[in-house]
Design a protein around this nucleic acid. Structure first.
Lengths: 137, 137
DNA sequence: ATAATTGCAAATGCTTTGCTTGTGA
DNA sequence: TCACAAGCAAAGCATTTGCAATTAT
């Protein structure tokens, strides 16, 4: 069966090679925003010949096609996730690197207002929260 | 006379060399969040022998001493600004790279709440707005 | 005096690219 | 078929680092 990302490739007319199908599959199933190295490690399990250059080229291609989203979190390598229907921001665990996704309409609205206040149309934004787990007693 | 950053260096026991004094002076007077290359270009006007490596080492040192703040805005090289008394976030003009600083207590509060909602103590955050100027008619 | 700092060039880490061979539509 | 993609190694870019010479305290 074809992965959700593979389907998006078909919709967008992105040519499907074995390598791309594999990367699409791994990213479709991934829940943890892998970086390129991790992704390469994963796909290598199924195709030991796949080159890291191909992984780089593919994530870039998918990003430009609006299929993957790239994140440059503080002090870390670029990480990728599949684009989802609704926008969300990220809360990053500074101890484990674990990521929690969240949606906060109130903040979204205030951002737009803030930009307008300065005479700007809000085109894009980046909101990242960095925190440490509060331990339960 | 000594610049504001130079004074901070004295307070924090950071050894002052001619190169550091110069970088301190330029950054103290700078209003536009320069990247390392721009900064190197500026200081080179007064000391043509200063090395880019020294500029890199110095901004890093100043950052670790809490004197400068580093920003990795989307798709650009690292830019630096002097640490100011009150925290602020940034609105970046996607056409010119110009930066508008803003403070929004409401958003700050909501960020803290959002983190807590997920069981995290908010330790740090990054909020960047990217926009384009609305032209007046 | 002497531990820290500089300048230089080489090394690094991540990412991109040129080129030749291979392949999907 | 044949424009496009893959693999490899080399190149690119921002940044860091080893080392010998220099300097601040």
């Amino acid at each position: 069966m074809s992965s959700s990302i593979e389907n998006k490739c078909k919709e967008k007319g992105v040519r499907l090679t074995d390598q791309r199908k594999l990367i699409a599959k791994v990213m479709s199933e991934s829940e943890n925003h892998p970086d390129v190295d991790e992704l390469h490690k994963q796909v290598s399990k199924q195709d030991s010949k796949i080159s890291i250059a191909t992984v780089y080229r593919t994530v870039k291609l998918f990003e430009e096609a609006g299929i993957l989203e790239k994140h440059d979190f503080k002090g870390a390598k670029a990480r990728y996730e599949k684009v989802s229907d609704e926008h969300h921001d990220h809360l990053i665990d500074i101890n484990t690197g674990e990521i929690v996704e969240f949606v906060n309409e109130e903040i979204e609205k205030l951002q737009k207002q803030e930009a307008e206040k300065h005479g700007y149309k809000l085109v894009d934004h980046r909101l990242e929260l960095y925190g440490s787990k509060i331990k339960k007693k």
